[in-house]
């Protein structure tokens, strides 16, 4: 990202002149208080929103110029676990997870197996056929994460992954993310939960009121 800013009308500055470079296969933490601009930054990274100014490139390609088929292909390679979950509350847990694989035309048997594996890893095996509207917030959060990683994306963006979870489940979520990271995926986690980045060896970027306050850590993999 080079000098990326995002403003919302009339004059709300969500991000101002952010310049960072995240390596392929890196695990990267974005921290800051509520309203610091963490979620906005993730939205810009997955091209859910366009920056007001500046340049964002992924694998050397400026993403705000991508359209149609190319943009769809890029989004298939980015898994996003949204803070507001974006679950289809009238569909089952399995259907919600499968959706990210269906858009890239994976075979039904591969989808079924992957869904079962992920549910097991996240301790949700008994919720396979449960309508997601009937799940607790913590369970919904895990389904969102499972959907984000299901298609084995090369980049995973996670917004507050442990917000509604107890310590044991947080551990499981982080284990899954670490597994994806070891598998070569770039992981970007926006959080204000210091328990998950306190002892990390990865880089941690702090945002304050939309501005880059500092980057600590940095043992690149």
């Amino acid at each position: 990202m080079i000098k990326v800013s995002k403003e919302y009308p009339p004059d709300v500055v969500a991000l101002k002149d952010i310049s960072i470079s995240i390596d392929s296969g890196e695990m990267f933490f974005i921290i800051g208080r509520s309203g610091a601009g963490k979620t906005t930054l993730l939205k810009l990274l997955c091209s859910m929103e366009a920056p007001s100014s500046g340049l964002i490139e992924i694998s050397g390609k400026p993403i705000n110029q991508l359209k149609g088929h190319h943009l769809a292909r890029l989004r298939q390679r980015i898994g996003v676990a949204y803070q507001d979950f974006k679950l289809l509350i009238d569909r089952t847990t399995a259907e919600n997870i499968a959706i990210s694989m269906e858009v890239s035309y994976k075979k039904p048997q591969i989808i079924r197996k992957r869904v079962r594996d992920l549910l097991e890893q996240l301790d949700l095996s008994d919720k396979h056929d449960t309508i997601t509207g009937e799940l607790s917030r913590g369970e919904q959060q895990r389904v969102t994460l499972a959907r984000a990683v299901a298609n084995s994306p090369t980049m995973i963006l996670v917004d507050e992954p442990t917000g509604n979870l107890d310590a044991a489940t947080t551990e499981k979520v982080m284990t899954l993310l670490n597994k994806c990271h070891k598998g070569g995926a770039t992981i970007v986690i926006a959080t204000h939960d210091d328990s998950i980045y306190r002892h990390t060896s990865h880089r941690v970027m702090e945002l304050q009121k939309g501005r880059l306050h500092g980057i600590t850590g940095g043992e690149l993999p």
Binding site: G68, H69, A72, R77, K86, I99, V103
Partner: peptide
Amino acid sequence: QAELELLKLVGATNNY
């Protein structure tokens, strides 16, 4: 609307 929005975000093509 919600489903279409999600499909877009997970990388569904226009044709899809």
